[in-house]
Amino acid sequence: MAGEALIELRGVNKHYGKLHVLQDIDLTVDRGEVVVVIGPSGSGKSTLCRAINRLETIESGTIELDGRPLPEEGRALAQLRAEVGMVFQSFNLFAHRTVLDNIMLAPVKVRKKRKDEAARRARELLDRVGLVSQADKYPAQLSGGQQQRVAIARALAMDPKALLFDEPTSALDPEMINEVLEVMRQLAREGMTMVVVTHEMGFARSAANRVVFMADGRIVEDRTPEEFFTAPRSERAKDFLSKILKH
C-alpha cells in the first residue's frame, strides 16, 4: 500500500431534520485501497458514500479528494465528480439511451473526447464486463445484473481515480449478485481505489483491505476484515454480525 491519502474526511457532520446521520466522521482512504462500509440500515453509510462526491451536502467538516477540498456547486464540482465514479443501488442507467451511448455520453460531453474514440473505449469496457453483445440495447431490455455491470463500465469510462459503490447489489436477484461482485473483485485486484457500501459479507472478507462498521451515524470500527469478522470489538458490531451471519 502506498499509504497516500486519496479520500479524506475530517469531522464531517450532517442532519436530516433532527436525525444526526453523520456524526464527526473521520475516514481516510488511501490510493489503491478497498474500503467496505457495512452497518445496519439507517446507520448513515449510504449518506457517507454520497457525501464523498457531494450528492449529499454536509454541514460541517471537510472532505478532500486527492488533496483538494470538495468545491461548492458549479463547474469545479462537476470536474471533480468526473474523477470519482459512482455506482448506484438502482443502476440509474440513462433510460432513453442505448447501452453504448450510456457509456460514451460523459466521455464525449464532459471530457470532449472524439466520438469514435469514445465508442471504441466503450466497447472495450463492455467487453471487460462481458456485455459487448448488448451494446445496442436499451437499459430496460437488460437484466438487473447486466444493467449494474453497464453502470460500472459507464463509471470506468471516465477513468476515475476512485469508485464509490452505494449498495450495488441490494436491488439484484440473488443469482445476479455474483456477476456484479466478480467485476468488482477484478477491479479491486487491479488496484482501483474503492469505497463500497454493501451487505455482502463475502465480498468484504475477500476483497476489502479495511472494513468500516457504522451504526447510528458514527464509525464504530475501522479494521481489517480478518480482525473485524473474527473478533469484533464493539457490542454493536457483535450484535450486527450475529444477526446477519447466523442464517
Partner: peptide, 20 residues
C-alpha cells in the same frame, strides 16, 4: 437517480438537464 447519475459523471447542470 437519472439526474444524480449524470451529475456523478461530471455533467454540469445545463448538461444534466439538456442531455439526460
Amino acid at each position: 437517480g437519472q439526474g444524480e447519475a449524470a451529475r456523478s459523471l461530471g455533467m454540469t447542470f445545463p448538461q444534466t438537464l439538456g442531455i439526460v
